[in-house]
Design a protein around this nucleic acid. Sequence first.
RNA 1: CGAGUUGGCCAGGCAAUCGCUGGCAAGAUUUUUUGUCAGAGGAAAGUCCGGGCUCCAUAGGACAAGGUGCCAGGUAACGCCUGGGGGGCGUGAGCCCACGGAAAGUGCAGCAGAGAGUAGACCGCCACACAUUAAUGCGUGGUAAGGGUGAAAGGGUGUGGUAAGAGCGCACCGCAGGCUUCUGGUAACAGACCUGGCUAGGUAAACCCCACCUGGAGCAAGGCUAAAUAGAAAUCCGUUCGCGUGGUCCGCGCGGGAUUUGGGUAGGCUGCUAGAGACAUUCGGUGACGAAUGCCGUAGAGGAAUGAUUGCCCAAGACAGAACCCGGCUUACAGGCUGACUCAAUCC
Length: 131
Amino acid sequence: MQKGAKGWPYRSKPVRFGYGNSLRLTEKRHFDRVFRQASVRRAHPPLRLIAIPNAKTTPRLGIVVGKRALRRAVDRNRLKRAIRESFRNEQHRLPSMDIIIQAMPGKDGMNDSTEWANALSLLWKDLNGEG
RNA sequence: CGAGUUGGCCAGGCAAUCGCUGGCAAGAUUUUUUGUCAGAGGAAAGUCCGGGCUCCAUAGGACAAGGUGCCAGGUAACGCCUGGGGGGCGUGAGCCCACGGAAAGUGCAGCAGAGAGUAGACCGCCACACAUUAAUGCGUGGUAAGGGUGAAAGGGUGUGGUAAGAGCGCACCGCAGGCUUCUGGUAACAGACCUGGCUAGGUAAACCCCACCUGGAGCAAGGCUAAAUAGAAAUCCGUUCGCGUGGUCCGCGCGGGAUUUGGGUAGGCUGCUAGAGACAUUCGGUGACGAAUGCCGUAGAGGAAUGAUUGCCCAAGACAGAACCCGGCUUACAGGCUGACUCAAUCC
């Protein structure tokens, strides 16, 4: 791929911003482990972060957006995409932890994308402080 | 040009960069890299119907329960669609209708009113008797034309008739019957004719009756492969008991016994997208639709992809996200394009 050399002169070495399967929580037991043994809990409404250290070299992300938080499937998809995108951009600054981002039911600002963005950046900052 | 009716179609576009999922090819060699191609909807929604598919019997019998309900056609099927009939609304194009049976039975109907389903005398009208002075009062009887009540008063209008009245008689309209009359129509039905009499009110998305239809569960269905652990399959025999099976019973299958052989949860793979398929032309049909020929290749995730940032353009972007697949219905929806038709005005 040419892009690293040509289109992105400000990036000195090729750092990948992908979001493959190794960066995701893919099974129910992974989620259960995080919820049970959570060592970090932070909340910036409308979002909540739960995390534990993992044995990998990278962070892993899981997203929980329930029907009670956002009724319409379109809105749930939009929020999940925003969270994934944010994680993708932040992943190299984050410690190696299994992280779950959860939408809090019954909070305002669920449909406001700037609220998500603010909450996410605060959560990432908190997590770096912990790590 | 204005007002309106109805059918079809579209659902911001382009570019750059960073990402996601899948197919194919190549490299690496056991799950990654590179290239390339593809990647949400008209409703993907509500889950209200109908099918396919899978397992339980090949889905079978009885009862129960539910659904449908003018006729004909279309279809894999339908509660859908098309055409027709009947009724209602609209000047019209057109729109709306759960549109079988109330003389099989049961039930229900507030208030008002004399009386509400075997009708019924409150006022009025009429006759007779009595009282007093012509008129009135009182009593007895007749009367459903008029008033009044009500959503509804037991056919309507006219005429004869009568003490006053009344389908009491007659004419027309309406109604019922003609199962086996005639004409048109495949039929629903329409028209004609004959007979009858005025009875048989409403309600069946009240029970009910009649006709027709419906077995149950669902892709977490089901199949293959398989750590831990010792629960299995095939064949034969048998039907006390338990389970499959759903509301019940019958029936059927499995567990049971014998023989032989090897099996199975987490996980993985599969089911998983080529289908009642799309488009074009021709032919048949009023139409829904069907047939033939040609041509196209069109999401397939699985904690769940189709996004983010930036720029430009315009009329400034609604409702909304596939989860086994189709056919419908219903509901939501910014705006735009387009076919046909109606009404009114004007011009020729």
